[in-house]
């Protein structure tokens, strides 16, 4: 039933907010960068250039794109779990640094010492890149605590998945966030599967937007495949948090096209289900269609963007392939700070 509801919701959204041509182009560019980057990362994983775990964001691009467009870049903090490449790219972190971290090279964002799941940027206020499911819910609540303590008027945007939404510390965090009215927006990226377990098999109630109800935290279910809906809801939620009203929950109904990680055979869902999302709900194709129908943009204009993005991704892959591994002396650095 939940799946059906998702699809219906997507077609029956009233009052869909409209984007300007500039907004459509920004969204198109950001989402395409994530898509092409992740495809390249998948290729490079296949070649053995990327090791360990590698969780791709393909299919979910509209979520982080719409939310970041609605946030104040450089001021609002963002934190997520291990499916983090897309967040960094859209927040403006260097694709070369991200890809070189995936290949474990010295030019990676964490000098090659973190890998796919552990990248950070104080400058962009991105706090990871966290490998323990649900831990970022508490950490993100702490970012909001610091905002309120310092009075810097920033908002913490804290992402976690439908799987993490069942973790106990999420509710400990909800409780404190509302108790102290902390400026945090919880983004539940519901891609319907926690690794191989569908939400119906893992969650007693599958409407995650209501998970804050007993703490009096408002929540909304949002079509996470439509970047305009994401943006619109995020604007509302971030404004709510920034104005001192406390936390807000946005459940993003989204979908990942690839497996949970690279080694996932994805036998827990049908090929038809994946195909249906790709063909009917793809976040990038939706924007492309609107742009072309709008008439202000031509196929050639979009092709030019594709070419530019491919060059960025190629450059990142090239750098990540040829950059040196970290010096052996790096083994012993960054463990503690010498006072």
């Amino acid at each position: 039933m939940a799946r059906k509801a998702t699809a219906l919701k997507a077609t029956a959204q009233p009052n869909v907010p409209q984007f300007t041509a500039e907004q459509e182009m920004e969204a198109f560019r950001d989402m395409l960068l994530v898509r092409r980057f992740e495809e390249k990362a998948g290729q490079m994983y296949g070649m053995g250039l990327i090791g360990g775990f590698c969780h791709l964001y393909i299919g979910q691009e509209a979520v982080v794109t719409g939310i970041t467009m609605a946030s104040e870049k450089g001021k609002d903090a963002q934190i997520t779990g291990y499916r983090d490449h897309g967040h960094m790219l859209v927040m403006g972190l260097d694709p070369k640094g991200v890809m070189a971290e995936l290949t474990g090279r010295q030019g990676g964002l964490s000098k090659g010492k973190g890998g796919s799941m552990h990248m950070f940027s104080n400058e962009h206020r991105f706090y990871g890149g966290n490998g323990i499911v649900g831990a970022q819910a508490s950490l993100g609540t702490g970012l909001a605590f610091a905002s309120k303590y310092k009075g810097d008027n920033s908002v913490s945007i804290t992402y976690f998945g439908d799987g993490a939404a069942n973790q106990g510390q999420v509710y400990e965090s909800f409780n404190m966030a509302k108790l102290w009215n902390l400026p945090v927006v919880y983004i539940i990226e519901n891609n319907k599967y926690a690794m191989g377990t569908s939400i119906e098999r893992a969650a007693a109630t599958t409407d995650f937007s209501k998970r804050g109800a007993s703490f009096d935290i408002p929540g909304e279910q949002v079509d996470g495949m439509d970047v305009r809906m994401v943006f619109d809801a995020a604007k509302r939620a971030i404004e709510w948090a920034r104005s001192g009203k406390g936390p807000y929950i946005l459940e993003m109904l989204t979908y990942r096209y690839r497996g949970h990680s690279m080694s996932d055979p994805a036998k827990y869902r049908t090929k038809d289900e994946v195909t249906k999302y790709r063909q009917e709900r793809d976040p990038i194709e939706q924007v492309r269609k609107r742009l072309l129908e709008g008439g202000s943009v031509t196929e050639d204009d979009l092709k030019k963007i594709e070419t530019d993005i491919r060059a960025v991704v190629t450059e990142a892959a090239d750098f990540a392939t040829n950059d040196a591994e970290p010096d052996a002396s790096e083994l012993w650095t960054d463990i503690t700070i010498e006072a």
């Binding site: 508490s138 950490l139 702490g142 610091a146 913490s156």
Partner: peptide, 26 residues
């Protein structure tokens, strides 16, 4: 009370919250 903060009995949550606050400079 801003600097001496009573918490609910939720060690996992408030420890994580404090770590996040430390990331942000506190």
């Amino acid at each position: 009370p801003e600097r001496v903060v009573d918490t609910p009995i939720t060690e996992h949550g408030f420890a994580g919250l404090a770590v996040g606050a430390a990331f942000a400079g506190l």
